[in-house]
Design a protein around this nucleic acid. Sequence first.
DNA 1: AGAATAGTGTCTTTAAGACAATATTGG
DNA 2: CCAATATTGTCTTAAAGACACTATTCT
Lengths: 244, 244
Amino acid sequence: MQKIEKKQSTSSNTSDDVFEKKPNTFVDVVIFSIIDNNLHVMLAKRSIEPCINQWSLIGGYIDIEKDANIEDCAKRKLYEKTGVKTPYLEQFCTFGSKNRDPRGWSISVIYFALIPQEKIKTQPGNGASDIKWEKITSDKIKEKLAFDHNVILSSCVKRLRNKVLYSSLPVYFMKNKFTLVELQKVYEIILDKEIDTKSFRRRILNADIIKKTNEMAYGTTRPAQLYQLKNSEIPYFFMRTLEG
Amino acid sequence: MQKIEKKQSTSSNTSDDVFEKKPNTFVDVVIFSIIDNNLHVMLAKRSIEPCINQWSLIGGYIDIEKDANIEDCAKRKLYEKTGVKTPYLEQFCTFGSKNRDPRGWSISVIYFALIPQEKIKTQPGNGASDIKWEKITSDKIKEKLAFDHNVILSSCVKRLRNKVLYSSLPVYFMKNKFTLVELQKVYEIILDKEIDTKSFRRRILNADIIKKTNEMAYGTTRPAQLYQLKNSEIPYFFMRTLEG
DNA sequence: AGAATAGTGTCTTTAAGACAATATTGG
DNA sequence: CCAATATTGTCTTAAAGACACTATTCT
């Protein structure tokens, strides 16, 4: 262990700055979407060291000139990669340790976002070769990510799964108008488990969070009622969790 | 708005340090305990600027030489003030903005701890004139705290309340051996609401989280069965929330 | 015996689970 | 009509709410 030099002269706006050395500070966003009947996460390929060319979650350091607060920082990173301004965004937790980044002590505030695939402007291949969607299979992905991002992703997926058992979170994956069958399918994809149709519909309709539109979804057989979210701001929390 | 100078020469341990200016980083712990049939929070009087002599939550900056990770940092601060090594400790959330601290951009990772009053070594007056317990009345305290600590405290109390509706968290306020009547009382204090005795006992006993001891608590009337926690590590989560 | 607190019995209510049954479309 | 999918009916089950009742102690 070498001694740390106390040479750093900070350009602080107060005279008594006691922070000789600070952790590096990041915000990372776990961006989820349902694609091809599977839960996916958005990854970015790192263009700089460390971990250059490895895939990672969407994020980067907090820019104290650009960002007024950490949520704005998360929104900025999200907007830069997806073109989406107001997705469902929730602070998940914060990872911080001396080892998680080779550059030294670092903190990363993790958010997660739920986005309907349709709303995402920047699709891989569409001028953005540095981002891609990776399929999540039971908490994990195949890709080996930079830093501790596999651990972060895994615990975030667990949190999402758990929360879906007692909330309306999956509605934030739906496009503007959707059928109850489609919504149930999204629940089943995330939970990786079949749900009884009657129970599901009773639960959702009872919660009074969606309203019928005057449109139907036509397919090859019986058309289905199209619904819309009533109040998209806050998710609904049920009094009971589903079996898990 | 003055321009920020980019003069800071960091003593980083890698050559390519892109972090011109970093937020200051803190960990604060909201330490709860039940005292005199009321929920209380531990406060510390600040001995340095800014906000000198104002009361605040227990916390301080992350010391990258002492702390291996943020949870250790929280445990260290908790131990320094309470003498308790292994309380119930949970990461709550992270606050970060350019305005919350007059010294500039700052991040604070907030933990909360639940401690039985009996376990706390450092009681106010006992050589520690810089700490005190403050009573919480419906999410708030009377004291005007430093920085944004009133906001942090308030949202943390709400989180605690909500979590008590569907978990066994209150057991972490109990001393080693306790009666079901005492545990119910703690639930009622936190929720500020009476609970039906039969329903409460059925719920707790059904969860199979406590076991009978061979001791009774003797008072002025009928003695009560003393119980102990079975597995103190992780809280129990019920399938249904209580009415709220 | 009577006050006080600990603890139980049991009926009602609510919402989920299970699963059979019906409804509506296209071919 | 038939296949396929959407939607509903209804019985069972699990756990909470309500509230009356019994049990055990001390004075």
